[in-house]
């Protein structure tokens, strides 16, 4: 659906409101990266739907000039799946935080990956609950002291990258919001990828997470593309994704090919998007139903 006749820039995707994020928040970099990516891909605003859940990062659809849904906490993926199924010609980008996606929405994360629905999911992972003023999230490190864990977190964090691969996502990447050029490039790849693509983005919370700061990541991040990495090798991808010490990898960990949900859904084979089809039953169809009851 990309139209190349009109060249839009990231500025054309600026939304009506300005972000209400804290100065220095990692999410600015994610917003910029998405705007840049969709502009460079040649999209126009009405061709995209941005869907989010609830949380600081989930305010993003208000700051971008595309169709948008700002939905319920943890429910962006099923909401976006509904949108995509009803109009599979739309490019649906899902955004949200780690609590939204991996905590309260964890069940949907698993099943959306399994279905391989053609969605691009950008998770702004700050390893903390920010909007509720600082409690542990499903990605918080062991030992982290927060308002809900004053004596330190004792729970093992989830690994979004390995989880996504194991559950069947076909494009799995990690990025850092401080590197807009890199992130924007990955988002472009993810949008182009047919199937469920997820990018777990380290997007530091400068207010409530004083452990996983911009400096923390800058010191540790190594890009997978700077060394040899075979993106079709899911086992090595998982091994590299498990590292969270002196070295933390970013980049595309895994890309595979598998039919997406729209591809295997017979009702979408012909006839265009469901949402634009004629309603009501044909005479023959109706007759067949009635005679089947007699």
């Amino acid at each position: 659906m990309a139209t190349t006749a009109i060249n839009l820039t990231a500025r054309d995707f600026k939304g009506k409101s300005d972000p209400d994020w804290c100065p220095g928040c990692g999410d600015f970099g994610v917003l910029n990266s998405i705007q840049r990516a969709v502009a460079e891909l040649g999209f126009r605003p009405h061709e995209i739907m941005t869907v989010s859940g609830i949380g600081c990062s989930s305010n993003l659809p208000g700051y971008i000039n595309t169709y948008g849904m700002h939905t319920l906490h943890g429910r962006s993926l099923p909401m976006a799946t509904g949108v995509k199924m009803a109009n599979h010609e739309m490019n649906v980008i899902v955004v949200g935080g780690d609590g939204d996606g991996y905590g309260i929405g964890g069940n949907h994360f698993t099943h959306t990956a399994r279905r391989n629905t053609d969605l691009t999911y950008v998770v702004m992972n700050n390893q903390i609950y920010g909007l509720t003023t600082g409690q542990i999230s499903p990605t918080s490190s062991i030992g982290m002291a927060t308002k809900s864990t004053p004596f330190g977190n004792v729970e093992q964090p989830i690994n979004p990258v390995t989880s996504a691969i194991m559950n069947g996502a076909t494009f799995v990447a990690r990025a850092y919001s401080g590197d807009v050029r890199h992130l924007s490039g990955i988002i472009q790849q993810a949008v182009r990828h047919k199937g469920f693509s997820i990018i777990d983005v380290f997007s530091p919370c400068v207010t409530f997470n004083l452990n996983n700061t911009h400096d923390f990541f800058k010191e540790r991040i190594k890009k997978l593309e700077d060394e040899e990495h075979n993106i079709s090798d899911w086992k090595t991808a998982c091994e590299k994704a498990m590292l969270f010490g002196d070295t933390i990898y970013t980049g595309v960990f895994y890309e595979g090919e598998r039919p997406s949900l729209e591809d295997v859904e017979p009702v979408l084979k012909t006839g265009g998007p469901l949402s634009f089809r004629e309603l009501g039953l044909g005479k023959d169809e109706a007759h067949k139903i009635i005679t089947g009851m007699m």
């Binding site: 739907m49 869907v51 849904m69 939905t71 319920l72 429910r75 099923p78 909401m79 976006a80 799946t81 509904g82 949108v83 199924m85 009803a86 109009n87 739309m90 069940n107 949907h108 099943h111 998007p273 469901l274 949402s275 634009f276 309603l279």
Partner: peptide
């Protein structure tokens, strides 16, 4: 939960759901 949110999403996109 997934059911309800999917039908709401599909309805927003324009189908009767």
């Amino acid at each position: 939960i997934g059911v309800a949110n999917m039908v709401v999403g599909a309805a927003q996109a324009g189908t009767r759901s």
